[in-house]
Design a protein around this nucleic acid. Structure first.
Length: 196
DNA sequence: AGCACGATTAACT
DNA sequence: GTTAATCGTGCTC
């Protein structure tokens, strides 16, 4: 049997909007204490550049945003609202701060462990938000800066069935209430399947 | 040192 | 529709 092909660094070393769009339909994989968890990515958002007032890098390079300035194909994982972790993949060349936030997946593998971590929520609420999927997949700050293209990656992405443009919805990014225009409304959120 | 707020979630009226 | 939970971060004093 074939091993599904993993996305390499070249995939992430591209324009962030393109990466976010093309991540739809790909499979997020988490190797968690020898168990394999996975889900199809159905929602993602692009954040790029210091001029993007929705991006954490609007404040320039700080201890938190350092990873976003580093090489593509690494995980940028941050803590927010005092309790939630968020998973992003760093994109574009070294020195340019950019990343794609993974906002929702459709769970495929490891359903028992996922359900246990997300108890007592029903299956449709297991991984339908950026913090929910991190909880379900056991992703936290200990994996910040993790190389998702390395041979021993505990988080990586595999090729999936391509999603046609007719099945992709774009909209403004979520949760940027205090952000100035045009960044607040720019349609850098990509959705398909159940999110659409 | 203090402060306001956050790329959210779940529970509640 | 509203709101509490809960604390790191970046900014001001």
């Amino acid at each position: 049997m074939f091993e599904s092909s993993r996305l390499g660094r070249d995939f992430f070393n591209r324009e962030t909007l393109k990466v976010a769009r093309e991540l739809l339909g790909m499979r997020l994989v988490r190797i968690d204490s020898r168990q394999r968890l996975s889900g199809v990515i159905i929602e993602a958002e692009a954040y790029r550049g210091e001029e993007d007032q929705g991006c954490h890098a609007r404040a320039g390079q700080t201890p938190r945003t350092r990873v976003m300035y580093g090489p593509p194909g690494h995980a940028y994982i941050y803590f927010t609202y005092g309790m939630h972790w968020m998973l992003n993949f760093v994109t574009e060349e070294v020195g340019y701060p950019a990343a794609v936030l993974i906002r929702a997946v459709h769970p495929l593998e490891g359903l028992h462990l996922i359900s246990k971590r997300r108890e007592p929520q029903p299956p449709q609420r297991w991984t339908d938000g950026p913090a929910k999927l991190c909880q379900a997949f056991g992703i936290d700050g200990s994996l910040n800066a993790h190389d998702i293209c390395g041979p021993d990656a505990q988080i990586f992405v595999e090729h999936g069935d391509p999603i046609p443009d007719s099945s992709v919805t774009k909209s403004p990014r979520v949760g940027l209430n205090n952000v100035s225009e045009p960044w607040k409304s720019i349609p850098w959120r990509f959705m398909t399947g159940a999110r659409q």
